[in-house]
Simulated scan of single mutants.
Amino acid sequence: MLGFRDPVADAIGLLRPRTVIGPSLRAAGQWALRFDTFLHVRIGGLVRGACWLILEGHEPVFLREGDTFMLGNPPPYVLAGTLDARPRPAEAVWSGAEDGFVRIGPESEEDLYLCVGHIAFDEENAALLTDLLPPLVIVRVDDPHGGRLAQLIDLLAIEVGVAAAGGPLVQNHLAQILLVHMLRAHAGQTDRPTGWLGALNEDGIGAALRAVHADVAHSWSLKELAEISHMSRSAFAQAFKRHVGVPPLEYLIQWRMSLARDALARDTLPISELARATGYLSESAFSTAFRRVVGSSPTQFRNQARQPARSAANGS
């Protein structure tokens, strides 16, 4: 049986996050770094000091000690000590990191300590999350979630700064915990989250989403999901589409197919068993739904997904 818990845990599990922490930035004086566009998510926070975050197409944002930020598939951006500093490419500066730190200016005058991490996802399912995120999420230290996030950034900074046994493992887990707390904070920001991320804060719709994720093999009907939400079928269908962006049963199909793609690429579960695990009474019904959503048969998808692995194993 496929494992399911709640929408956030399930989505992050399917995303197979790969975390790269640091290097951290310590700076003094006049400085500005320009970062190129990148895929997926970058998370950072100010351990000490303040700086500007200038995202292309957005107004500059002033970050203070304890503030955290999350960038989702962002355009190029600049981090700067002052708005009038001339940016230089970050890549060249980052390549000179030593012992997990990049330093700008005299070490004795450093007044900024920024900890950052990059989280990349399995490309096949990355859109489950990245399509829901704006380019920039800011959580201030005085936000209801801000203090907890600041503590996590501090812990992450400590791990980056020491060469202790198991450091990369701790950093990876802290970054994923930080991601979950950032998503919670974003979901709590009025009128900002979209899709299932925002719907989790709606009692009725959230209850239906959690029920679907708890038992994806169940043959869910609109009537059952509406009853869980304590709403009429028409009111539930309208509210679900308004918050999530698609009708409830279409969401169910999309989630089942996301699970199916992951399973086909990673294990040898027979397609007939995978069909039952994702709520289909027959392999043919599952295959029809899979082809409609994914564009190929389950067998074709499995063979294509495993081709790179076979090529790597053969050294080609």
Rank of each mutant, 00 (worst) to 15 (best):
R48C: 06
H181E: 00
R86N: 10
G72S: 03
L63M: 14
D262A: 15
E107P: 01
G22V: 13
G166C: 01
D131C: 08
L259M: 14
D131W: 11
V8K: 09
L225A: 08
I228D: 10
G279E: 06
A237G: 11
V180N: 01
P74T: 09
V246E: 11
Q189E: 10
G204I: 10
E107N: 00
S258V: 01
A207E: 13
D215T: 00
R210N: 07
E124M: 01
E273W: 03
A28I: 02
N125T: 03
R192I: 01
R302W: 02
E227H: 13
N172K: 10
C51A: 13
P17Y: 07
V180C: 00
S24Q: 14
A157M: 07
L55Y: 03
P106K: 03
E202S: 11
Y113M: 07
L79V: 14
P193A: 02
E124I: 00
A11D: 10
V78Y: 00
G161T: 09
R292I: 00
R86T: 15
R86M: 11
T194H: 03
P75L: 15
R64T: 13
R291N: 08
A211S: 09
T190I: 07
G188H: 12
R34T: 01
N201H: 12
M70H: 08
V47D: 14
R242D: 10
P87N: 01
T130F: 02
F38A: 15
D6H: 12
P168C: 05
P308F: 12
S282Q: 05
A237D: 14
R210H: 06
I271M: 04
Y280D: 04
L71W: 04
A80D: 01
I205N: 08
M70W: 11
E283V: 09
A11G: 04
E98G: 09
P135S: 13
H58A: 11
G44E: 13
D111E: 14
L155P: 07
R266N: 13
V141D: 08
L174Q: 05
T278S: 05
L200K: 04
L63T: 07
R148M: 10
A164E: 04
A199H: 02
R18Q: 14
L209A: 03
E107S: 08
R291S: 12
T130I: 12
A217P: 02
L33Y: 04
M182T: 10
I104D: 02
A312D: 06
T130G: 03
N172W: 08
L25Y: 02
D131A: 14
